[in-house]
Simulated assay, not measured.
Amino acid sequence: MHEINAKSILSAQNGMNLYRGCTHGCIYCDARSKCYHTPEPFEDIEIKVNAPELLEDALKRKRKKCMIGTGSMSDPYIHLEEKLGLTRKCLEIIDHYGFGLAIQTKSTRILRDLDLLESINKKAKCVVQMTLTTYDENLCRIVEPNVSTTRERFEALKIFRDHGIPTVVWMTPVLPYLNDTMENLNGILDYCLEAKVVGIIAFGMGLTLREGDREYYYAALDKHFPGLKQRYLDRFGWNAYELSSPDYWNLTRRFNDFCGRNGIMNKPDEIFGYMRDFPEQEKPQQLLFDF
Rank of each mutant, 00 (worst) to 15 (best):
F278C: 05
W238I: 03
R161D: 05
Q104Y: 09
V147R: 01
M16T: 06
V49D: 05
R253V: 12
L86V: 11
R20F: 06
H37N: 13
Y36V: 01
L101H: 04
C26E: 11
N262Y: 08
I110Y: 00
R253H: 15
P41T: 07
C126K: 08
A219P: 02
F225Y: 13
Q285D: 09
F291P: 10
L18N: 02
P166D: 01
S119Y: 07
N146I: 03
P173T: 03
I159P: 13
N256W: 14
C22V: 00
K122P: 02
C35Y: 08
D257M: 11
F255V: 01
I110V: 13
D95G: 09
N5S: 08
R151E: 14
S72F: 07
L84Q: 04
N250P: 00
N179C: 03
A195H: 07
Y191V: 05
P76H: 07
L185C: 09
F289D: 00
G199F: 02
F272W: 15
C29P: 09
G69A: 13
I165Q: 04
T208W: 03
P145L: 01
F291C: 13
E270R: 12
Y97A: 09
I159R: 11
A51D: 06
W170C: 10
F42G: 04
M73I: 10
T134K: 00
L193S: 01
D57H: 09
G204K: 09
L18G: 06
M73Y: 03
H163D: 04
I110A: 14
T87A: 04
L221V: 11
R231S: 06
M265C: 07
I94F: 02
G263E: 11
R254N: 11
N186Q: 14
P246R: 08
P76E: 10
R153S: 00
M205V: 10
E280A: 14
Y217N: 08
P268A: 02
C22R: 03
P268M: 06
N262K: 10
R254Q: 14
F160Y: 12
A220P: 11
L178W: 01
V128G: 01
D75T: 07
L59C: 05
A156R: 08
F225M: 06
Y216N: 11
D44A: 12
L111P: 04
R20G: 03
F225S: 08
K60H: 14
F203D: 14
E155F: 05
Y28G: 03
H79T: 07
I165V: 14
H96L: 15
G199H: 07
L228I: 07
T87P: 10
I200N: 08
D180P: 09
F258I: 00
L59W: 02
K283C: 00
L139R: 01
S8N: 12
I27A: 10
E242V: 12
I94A: 03
T172I: 11
G98A: 05
G100S: 06
G199A: 10
E280F: 08
D95Y: 11
V49Q: 15
D234L: 10
D57K: 15
G21I: 06
R20E: 10
A124D: 10
T131S: 14
I45T: 02
Y97K: 05
E56P: 08
D115I: 05
A219H: 12
V198Q: 14
D113Y: 02
C140H: 13
D257Y: 07
I142Y: 04
K34D: 13
